Simulated assay, not measured.
Amino acid sequence: MSIIQEKGCQTHGVLHLNYAGISDRDFEDFKDFKSEETEFIYLKRNLLTNVPPAVLQCSALKHIYIEDNELVELPPEICQLHNLCVLNVTGNQLSSLPHTIGQLKNLTKLQIGNNRLTSLPKTLGRLSHLVTLEASRNDLQTVPRELLGCSSLKLLALDKNKLTWLPRQLCWLPSLQELSLAGNFLQYLPPMLFKQPRLKELVLDENTALHYLPYGTAVYETFYSPLLEVSANHVHGNDVVCGHMQEVDPGRSFLVPPPEITDVLTSTHRVPRLEELTMRTVARLLRHQEDVYVLGLPREVADHLAFPTDICAQEQLGNSCQNFVYKSAFPMVFKRHHILRGLLACSYTCFLECLKI
């Protein structure tokens, strides 16, 4: 009798092998595995270094839990599991994911936390049914903008990574409700993130380089509340009150603009750069164009037109300005009535005149 037959239990399409101490070799010797009937596999806390080939033959498999093993890779053949809904490989030694993971069209939950991942494959953006992506405790420095294709994504957990910035495209995730970014190295957040209508919870604890938050209409109504957890940044959401505004001093070290804003203009500039003005003009002409990518524009230009960096703060305050901000802007910070140990609200205006509110 093999160790799997001795310690395992396979009934009604479920294979239970948690805490069984099984290795790769044990699966090779397992002859009675009913792969065609198996829908759930539990392999928690074993000694597996690879996903057993027998598991990849389970055409009916819907849930697989291989957390806390010693996996060093996921095989490209994982894409053969067309019915897979839940994949949990938390607590392994994975340094990358196969690009074929984007072929798991029915995947709704992906748990890849506590590994050694330095990047995520762009093909994750093909998982339109993905609801939960848990990738905390890795070595991620950013996430692919292609995640925008995960139109069903509600929970995105990226705690305890090495993130310094987030792609602005993530602000347009249509279903996102919870975003957890605790324990990273964030210096700024995409301004449009705070205009996400469905976002209910944003966790920012232990981002010690984060000294300001973007300003938006919804910020003071929703996000500066108990739902915005930034306690380790020495600030509580309830303490933030919208006050007067002032022009930011470009020499102030706390202001780190989004990477696409290459020039943070000062009061010596009266208008934005020509490139910026051109993009605003083109955007107004294409206001009713559903897809700017079909027009043959350069990828970078099309990407900015489809996902602008911010909207002028005048518009946010209910005034008449209709301009989006793309690659250059006039920054400003908001004073507050309460002392918040250095955390301010930052926004951008399209012209110097808009700064004088």
Rank of each mutant, 00 (worst) to 15 (best):
H63Y: 13
I66N: 03
D68E: 14
N69M: 12
E70N: 15
V72M: 10
P75Y: 09
E77H: 14
C79D: 14
C85K: 15
C85V: 15
C85H: 15
V86Q: 11
V89F: 03
T90I: 13
T90L: 12
G91P: 07
L94H: 04
L97C: 05
H99E: 09
H99M: 08
I101C: 01
G102Y: 02
G102V: 05
G102I: 10
Q103L: 10
Q103D: 04
L104W: 05
L104D: 01
L104K: 02
K105V: 13
N106D: 12
L107Y: 00
T108H: 11
K109Y: 00
L110V: 06
G113L: 01
G113F: 06
N115T: 03
N115V: 01
L117S: 02
L117T: 11
S119A: 09
L120C: 00
L120M: 05
P121I: 00
T123L: 04
L124M: 02
G125P: 01
R126Y: 12
R126S: 14
R126K: 15
R126P: 01
S128K: 11
L130F: 01
L130Y: 03
V131Q: 07
V131S: 05
L133F: 15
E134C: 06
A135L: 00
S136C: 14
R137L: 07
R137D: 13
N138A: 11
D139C: 13
D139Y: 00
